[in-house]
């Protein structure tokens, strides 16, 4: 290939123009402008559980199963309550019979009688989907059936889910299960049909002791946000980097 001087200069100029021209298409936006362009919502749901108030009645589990039509007698549930009993010998016993659907009515645990005098501490921990900011379950879905709604709720598209179960394996909290009727992955929706109407989630409403609360974490005046901001709250399995949005008051190190 031959290249004259004239030809070389001409092509260099064209090349330089081609490189610089698209730069004018870029514009530096202020953070406010960027947020407006992305239409970022000012709503992000968060959940607060006060474990110190829980008595293990399981009315939340019962209400959730009825409200969300999870077959009542199947061993699956969107929310459940765990009982932790720590004895003098340092052992921790954990149980949740039927997800505590019928509450805890017996001091017996896993077929074992525990001497009352041996118990150093015992408590109940309600669990549900953490609606993580970076949910592992969503990341692994091969078909785009599970996603994070603009308000933070992690939902499953029942018409799109192929039931492969990757998300059930991926969730570090074990909150997902296979729906026995719809044959798709199932999980807590934060009662999306209720919160989008301005109602409380079924479990929040059913709790007689105010253990469960929900709020908008982007609103600094929200009573729940105020507690999360000003009191000592913990989250489950922080080390997984999933940024869970269910916050716990009075969380014990034994809770997994």
């Amino acid at each position: 290939m031959k290249c004259s001087r004239r030809n070389f200069l001409q092509k260099s100029i064209y090349g330089a123009l081609a490189v610089t021209l698209p730069l004018t298409a870029f514009k530096i936006l202020s953070p406010g402008e960027a947020a407006a362009a992305l239409k970022e919502s000012n709503l992000r749901w968060a959940f607060l559980v006060d474990t110190r108030k829980c008595v293990g009645c399981g009315l939340c589990v019962k209400a959730c199963k009825n409200e969300n039509e999870i077959p009542y007698d199947t061993p699956v549930t969107r929310t459940w309550v765990e009982r932790y009993v720590v004895t003098r010998d340092g052992k921790t016993r954990i149980d949740s019979p039927n997800g505590a659907r019928d509450g805890f009515t017996s001091p017996e645990m896993l077929g074992e009688k525990i001497d009352e005098k041996e118990i150093t501490k015992a408590f109940f921990v309600p669990k549900l989907c953490n609606h993580c900011a970076t949910p592992a379950c969503v990341q692994v879905c091969p078909v785009g059936a599970t996603y994070q709604a603009p308000d933070g709720a992690v939902l499953v598209d029942r018409t799109w889910c192929i039931g492969c179960g990757y998300c059930i394996m991926a969730c570090p909290y074990g909150v997902r299960f296979f729906h026995p009727v719809h044959k798709v992955a199932e999980k807590c929706t934060f009662c999306y049909h209720r919160i989008s109407k301005g109602m409380q989630a079924a479990c929040v409403q059913a709790c007689p002791f105010g253990v469960r609360q929900m709020g908008n974490i982007k609103d600094p005046d929200d009573p729940v946000t105020k507690i999360i901001m000003s009191e000592r709250v913990g989250v489950l399995k922080d080390e997984y980097g999933t940024k869970p949005h269910v916050f716990y008051l009075g969380l014990d190190e034994r809770v997994r």
Binding site: G56, G103, E116, F123
Partner: peptide
């Protein structure tokens, strides 16, 4: 019994 079956757990509301 969900609430009123006695469970003697120290420091628990139950």
């Amino acid at each position: 019994l969900r609430c009123h079956a006695r469970l003697n757990y120290p420091d628990a509301l139950r």
